[in-house]
């Protein structure tokens, strides 16, 4: 269920000419809605090197339609690298990354943009575009397809859902860190790709907006998208993810539903910090709490952690 469009470069003014190969956007194939459970992004025995260091060593993971997959793990475990590899930003040293069933290298940049959207860790902007324009940039991949008709609606909906509608006319540079993060998320949502890769979307956000962002992830998964989200807050991961992959030293230490994966021994080892996992008294979702000493008994805790 695919259709092809020949699209003109940029705004739609086709200019065939000698240098046209440099300018042409070529043919794109608009993807069909994925069936629930389809693997939209897969890593197969993925190894990634950054300089001399092997950051990812043999990752096997798939992100499926209709599912929120949380990537958790300590600093430097390779979460963001894995996300970048899934986004086709980093090349595999060996192994393979497949998007929508094909190796990432086989897709052109415009084709990939119809299939996956990526929220970077830090939102940057070289020039002071107004917020509305920034979100509208998320619609660029659809220019020249019938879905361009939905541009304004998608932009308005995305801005409303992350609560940045009232900033529409303000320049991006005048926003606070948390507001910028939400605008960046709105841009990603407006893209409406079936695979969302979000790198720490909650890092700069207050409590309310952290919950909001994860609820949006759930809604997108319910609507049939695949969502991969890098999270530091294990409580959020436990509450909202269908699956969690715990990364440790470039490998996947555990992969499965949070209720099964999040257990004391594994997390204590991976994070090198004693933790307790308790069921929430009302919902039963796992709560991950660092083992904290009662005031005055730190000495005992330190010796306990050392064993």
């Amino acid at each position: 269920m695919t259709r092809t469009h020949t699209t003109a470069p940029g705004t739609g003014a086709a200019r065939p000419g000698a240098l046209s190969r440099l300018f042409a956007r070529g043919r794109r194939t608009v993807p069909a809605r994925p069936a629930p459970g389809t693997a939209l992004a897969e890593a197969v025995d993925l190894h990634v090197r950054l300089g001399q260091r092997e950051v990812l060593a043999g990752i096997d993971l798939s992100a499926r339609a209709g599912e929120v997959l949380a990537l958790v793990g300590p600093n430097g475990a390779g979460k963001s690298t894995l996300l970048a590899a899934l986004a086709a930003d980093l090349p595999a040293a060996s192994g393979e990354v497949r998007i929508d069933g094909r190796p990432v290298g086989d897709w052109s940049a415009p084709d990939l943009a119809l299939r996956r959207s990526v929220l970077p860790q830090a939102a940057a902007l070289s020039f002071p575009f107004p917020v509305g324009d920034v979100v509208r940039m998320g619609r660029a991949p659809w220019a020249g397809t019938p879905f361009a008709e939905a541009d304004e609606e998608a932009v308005a909906a995305a801005m409303a859902v992350v609560e940045v509608g009232e900033f529409a006319a303000r320049p991006f540079s005048a926003l606070s860190g948390g507001e910028r993060a939400r605008v960046a998320l709105a841009r990603v949502l407006a893209q409406r790709a079936p695979l969302l890769l979000l790198d720490e979307p909650t890092a700069a956000l207050d409590l309310r907006h952290q919950e909001l962002v994860l609820r949006i992830c759930r809604e997108r998964a319910r609507a049939g998208d695949a969502v991969v989200v890098v999270l530091h807050d294990l409580g959020l991961a436990a509450a909202y993810a269908d699956r969690a992959a715990v990364l440790h030293d470039g490998r996947i230490a555990a992969d499965g539903p949070p209720a099964e994966v999040f257990e004391d021994a594994l997390l204590s080892r991976v994070y090198r910090q004693p933790v307790e996992v308790l069921p929430h008294p009302r919902t039963g979702a796992p709560l991950v709490v660092p083992v904290r000493a009662v005031e005055g008994s730190y000495d005992g805790l330190v010796s306990q952690a050392g064993t």
């Binding site: 470069p9 200019r15 902007l125 575009f129």
Partner: peptide, 21 residues
């Protein structure tokens, strides 16, 4: 002809690529 893609490039190189540039 490159104006629109230059707009996207102001997001940074990777985000621009994510948007199909």
């Amino acid at each position: 002809l490159y104006a629109r893609r230059l707009d996207l490039l102001s997001l940074g190189e990777r985000p621009a690529r994510h948007l199909g540039v």
